[in-house]
Write a protein that binds this DNA or RNA. Structure first.
Lengths: 132, 132
DNA sequence: ATTAAATTGTTATAATATAACAAAATGTAA
DNA sequence: TTACATTTTGTTATATTATAACAATTTAAT
């Protein structure tokens, strides 16, 4: 269950922008888009992004240095994330699949060690791009 | 099966350095370390890194912007990679686990889509750091 | 030997991210 | 409701990561 966080002004502005975006957004693209709202410096963006990631409202797509809103209530506090990424159009979709998340959450390495957190990125062609 | 690639001079210098390193190396740390061997510019490093990643001799740890040598003959051409990362000491280990790699290679999303490639990063505490 | 392809060297610059510190807003407890 | 601590903000400067563009050299395949 998510603890509800009240977002601050900057966090809300930046979350709203990312949440509306159909694709992952990069930090400086976010900055450009919120300058008219008074957010002028990279650090203001990065601080909001850090917090939003921390509380699980957005995720960072590590291979792309870009951010998307979380639409998966089961990825508690960003501790278990999985995405599919189209290598042509760069469309990113968050995967929510019980079998996958259970498998990974319970995965033990050869020393019997379990992990508190994971991030998985699948790459391939999305439906649209496969057809072309 | 890996096609054997003959590394070029710069590629060999940079691969040897990464291969000897007990921890992932960052691009500018690599640059600093190979300057005495005549590699002077970032681009020379990045070009070698790109090629080494492409042929599967090294992997990029995306969440750390760092590179480690591959010690896993089964991760054909860097198409299927999994790592454990200690959040305290930053030790990174490549995971080679048949069950895991089979599970992920065969994973289909809800549209029945399979992926040609994946990268998985597990986070937690390594044995040493857990004890402390 | 000729030539195409890959690699290298080099300068400049783009893109991503953080340090440091002061000011303002917010939360909490008497 | 004031005092105090904490968090958030604003701001300037700078660090870190990565690529563009183009000429020169080396390598591989005829």
């Amino acid at each position: 269950m998510h603890k509800e966080h009240t977002l601050t002004k900057n966090q809300q502005i930046i979350f709203d922008l990312i949440d509306k975006s159909p694709e992952p957004m990069k930090a400086y693209s976010i900055l450009f888009n919120v300058q008219k709202k008074g957010i002028k410096a990279p650090l203001q963006v990065y601080r909001a992004l850090d917090k939003l990631v921390e509380i699980g409202k957005i995720h960072k797509i590590e291979s792309r240095n870009a951010f998307i809103a979380c639409h998966n209530s089961s990825c508690q506090m960003a501790k278990a994330t999985a995405f599919s990424i189209c290598e042509i159009c760069e469309k990113v979709t968050e995967i929510s699949n019980d079998s996958l998340s259970k498998y990974l959450a319970n995965f033990k390495d050869k020393d019997g060690m379990k992990y508190s957190k994971y991030n998985l990125e699948f790459f391939g062609l999305c439906k649209k791009c496969k057809v072309k």
